[in-house]
Every structure is written in structure tokens, then in C-alpha cells.
């Protein structure tokens, strides 16, 4: 395997217990262990996190923006999926 060029990793940080990990950026490292070390130095210098995930960027499968109409438009006209679509008469409570 040619590792002359360190691969790119994506970094996800959980800022505190109870919240999910969130993408914060990326970095280069020789392997995942080094990526964790670098992520700690690069993205948590001011106590921004209590947990770090790193993943090889190549392992991320992303949708194509050209597919956005097919992927996301069908949800737009389904307004009945939102509670505000329904009429609640005055006087009815706890609904």
C-alpha cells in the first residue's frame, strides 16, 4: 500500500455527554490512531469535546447533489406528515 501521502480523515466530536457526535473538519494522518491524536490537538484545544470519532474520508459514501430532486423533493408535498397540517378545534386540549 502506498502510504507516502497520508490519507484524509474526517473528524467528529461529541461536545458533551448527551449530544451526538458532529462533523467538525478533516485532517491528514498516517493511520487512524494518529488521526485520533491529531484530532485531539487540532479540534479540542479549548475543551470542545469529550469523545472523538475519526473515519477515513474514502469510506464515506455521499449522495450526489444532481440527485437532489429525486431524493428530496418527494417529501416536500407531504405536508400531512407535520402536526401543523391538522385542524385542532378550540377547546380540545392535550393533543
Amino acid at each position: 500500500m502506498d502510504r507516502k501521502h497520508w490519507p484524509l480523515f474526517e473528524v467528529f466530536i461529541r461536545s458533551r455527554a448527551g449530544l451526538s457526535h458532529r462533523h467538525v473538519g478533516s485532517l491528514h494522518a498516517a493511520d487512524a490512531d494518529m488521526a485520533l491524536d491529531h484530532a485531539r490537538d487540532l479540534y479540542t484545544r479549548r475543551s470542545e469535546g469529550v469523545s472523538i470519532w475519526v473515519i477515513d474520508s474514502k469510506s464515506i459514501v455521499a449522495s450526489d447533489p444532481d440527485d437532489n430532486p429525486e431524493l428530496f423533493e418527494p417529501a416536500e408535498d407531504k405536508i400531512y406528515r407535520h402536526p401543523t397540517f391538522y385542524e385542532v378545534p378550540d377547546g380540545v386540549e392535550n393533543l
Binding site: 502510504r3 507516502k4 498516517a30 493511520d31 494518529m34
Partner: peptide
């Protein structure tokens, strides 16, 4: 950089 790559 080379040593880190070799180790990986």
C-alpha cells in the same frame, strides 16, 4: 512523515 507511514 516516512517513519509514520512505514509504521502504519
Amino acid at each position: 512523515r516516512e517513519a509514520a507511514a512505514a509504521y502504519a
